[in-house]
């Protein structure tokens, strides 16, 4: 199966989505990422039981922070899919890329800084 997904998606591997902390998502935004999403396992199928639920709550926290700062919370998202769902992975990457393209560049781009 040779699937293609948008080349703008930079994949950062973690042992479990539960490893993704609030600061990791914030740093991505701070450093100019237009969007950031977490691809966790299906709910109820976490090898570490609750890693993906923890990630989900952290994503929600960051969404709330962005909203407070007047930045579109849709720039941060959580997706759940199993490791065997390659086509779904490519589909999500495309979906997220399209969503971000519609939103336009992040207002936090470093070049916007004085």
């Amino acid at each position: 199966m040779r699937l293609s997904y948008p080349s703008n998606v930079k994949v950062i591997q973690v042992p479990c989505s539960g490893r993704v902390d609030i600061i990791h998502l914030l740093k991505a935004i701070e450093d100019g990422a237009d969007g950031v999403y977490v691809a966790g396992c299906l709910e109820g199928e976490c090898h570490f039981l609750t890693g993906n639920f923890k990630a989900k709550k952290r994503v929600q926290y960051v969404k709330k922070v962005l909203e407070e700062l007047g930045i579109e919370p849709e720039r941060v998202e959580m997706f759940n899919l199993s490791a065997g769902e390659g086509p779904r992975f490519a589909e999500i990457a495309t979906e997220m890329t399209e969503r971000i393209r519609e939103l336009g560049p992040s207002p936090v781009k470093p070049q916007n800084a004085a």
């Binding site: 609030i22 600061i23 914030l26 740093k27 935004i29 701070e30 922070v65 700062l69 007047g70 930045i71 207002p107 936090v108 781009k109 470093p110 916007n112 800084a113 004085a114």
Partner: peptide
């Protein structure tokens, strides 16, 4: 976390 949030807020305003 707070440091990052404050930096994001200011970068958005274009004021470091």
């Amino acid at each position: 976390i707070l440091a990052s949030i404050l930096r994001i807020a200011r970068k958005k305003e274009g004021r470091l």
